[in-house]
């Protein structure tokens, strides 16, 4: 599949990434390589093979519905790049 610079722009927009011209050029080539590898995978006969979405042979990892103490708010907010005493803050994000 041919990756165009417009496709890279679109994907970086969705991922909120700002790319310089040289980065964009580099990314275009790398994405094309990755997709070429997908073509290799697509060539493999997987008839009758169950799709895997998790690499370890485990399933049904569940917990009981029992309330435990939540985290200290001040501690949580200390991890944010911007906060007041009660809430996380972000630049105004009106829908």
């Amino acid at each position: 599949m041919k990756i165009t610079p417009e496709m890279v722009d679109y994907i970086s927009e969705l991922s909120r990434l700002r790319l310089s011209d040289s980065e964009r050029e580099k990314m275009t080539g790398e994405l094309e390589q990755i997709l070429a590898y997908m073509d290799v995978l697509n060539g493999i006969d997987t008839d009758g093979v169950e799709p895997v979405s998790h690499i370890f042979p485990i399933k049904n990892v569940l917990r009981d519905d029992v309330v435990e103490a939540s985290f200290d708010r001040a501690e949580l907010l200390r991890n944010a790049s911007w906060a007041d005493t009660e809430t996380f803050l972000v630049p105004k994000a009106v829908d």
């Binding site: 917990r63 519905d65 939540s70 985290f71 708010r73 949580l76 991890n79 009660e86 996380f88």
Partner: peptide, 26 residues
């Protein structure tokens, strides 16, 4: 509840945390 007092690293999306599904939800 006061803002962000029913929260922990998992539900605030801190890196390195792992979600574990509530049996009752299923």
């Amino acid at each position: 509840g006061a803002p962000n007092t029913h929260c922990c690293p998992i539900c605030t999306g801190m890196p390195g945390t792992l979600p574990v599904v509530n049996r009752m939800v299923v």
